[in-house]
Design a protein around this nucleic acid. Structure first.
Length: 290
DNA sequence: ACCCGTGTTCGCTG
DNA sequence: TCAGCGAACACGGG
């Protein structure tokens, strides 16, 4: 379930698991062709012998840097809809839907698993990530760099499209996806249907706060121990078992508005509504988002 | 069987 | 040229 918070968890996990380690072997499952494009499974052999030197995240993108025999090698990893990075012991079976596997020199195996194959695993020559068009187009990362509120206001002021759709544009707020967009607008008390250009400066400030608060809140949820207990690794929410939906409005159509400190205006009458914008579900409370 | 899905891209239309 | 849609991708779950 990768938006910025989940990808941040993946980045922290990968840093802990892999930085400083050498890759013994790398391989891809036959069905991984789509994820590797325009590369090939055979090209992964170029990773053998390389040492992982760093992991970075911008928005929903992971960038691994490795030191190979003939210079730096980059890996651009995007989790798509269903991608995740998992760690297994030397003799453990591969997880379901494992598409790419990296064997490290401590005996561990890192798996990129992705049921729906919407993700990416692309080698970047000489680790020149700026040469990748998809990465060069990204704006500044909210969590790493903070939000430039006046800059955000300027961008939004040119756009007629609904604010919910605008903030999911990765050039504007990298890492914000369908959940974080609904959650941030709820926290800010802004109606997701409003044209982006209609937001006043105070509302842009509230939105920026809502985005940051929602991202940090979601990140805390992922840090919690899973329902199987005893695990110290950071886990994805969905792997925590029976835990309830942690979000304020996302996935809560028909529920009473959660209100409290999150509600911008205390009407006390709201119900969470589901609408569709640009083909994606949006959840909001019409009574307190204006 | 039908609908839905935490992402992105492509093609069509006005 | 561009904003705005819908479809497509691929697969499982409710």
């Amino acid at each position: 379930m990768p938006e910025l918070p989940e990808v941040e968890v993946a980045a922290r996990n990968l840093a802990r698991w892999a930085v400083g380690r050498r890759v013994r072997a790398a391989r891809a499952e036959a069905g991984a062709k789509r994820i590797l494009r325009p590369g090939s499974p055979a090209a992964l052999r170029g990773l053998a012998g390389a040492r992982v030197s760093g992991v970075r995240r911008v928005g929903k993108n992971l960038m691994l840097t490795l030191d190979g025999r003939s210079g730096p090698i980059g890996v651009w990893s995007h989790l798509g809809m269903t991608g995740k990075w998992l760690r297994r012991g030397a003799s453990d079976p591969a997880p379901r839907f494992s598409r790419v596997e990296l064997d490290l020199d401590d005996g561990s195996h890192l798996h990129y698993a992705d049921m729906r194959l919407f993700g990416r695993f692309r080698l970047v020559p000489r680790a020149k990530f700026d040469d990748v068009a998809e990465l060069a187009a990204l704006g500044r990362d909210p969590l790493n760099d903070g939000i430039d509120v006046p800059g955000l206001g300027t961008r939004l002021a040119r756009l007629k499209l609904p604010i919910k759709v605008a903030i999911m544009d990765q050039r504007i707020l990298p890492g914000v996806g369908n959940i974080q967009a609904s959650e941030a607008l709820f926290r800010a008390g802004i109606d997701p249907r409003r044209p982006a250009k209609s937001l006043k400066p105070a509302e842009v400030r509230a939105l920026a706060r809502g985005v940051m608060t929602s991202i940090r809140y979601t990140l805390r949820q992922f840090g919690k121990t899973g329902a199987d207990g005893g695990r110290t690794d950071i886990e994805y929410v969905e792997e925590a078992g029976e835990r309830a939906n942690p979000f304020l409005v996302y996935g809560r159509a028909g529920a009473p508005c959660p209100g409290g400190k999150h509600r911008a205006k205390r009407t006390g009458t709201g119900t969470v509504t589901r609408i569709v914008q640009a083909g994606r579900a949006t959840f909001f409370c019409a009574a307190c988002q204006h």
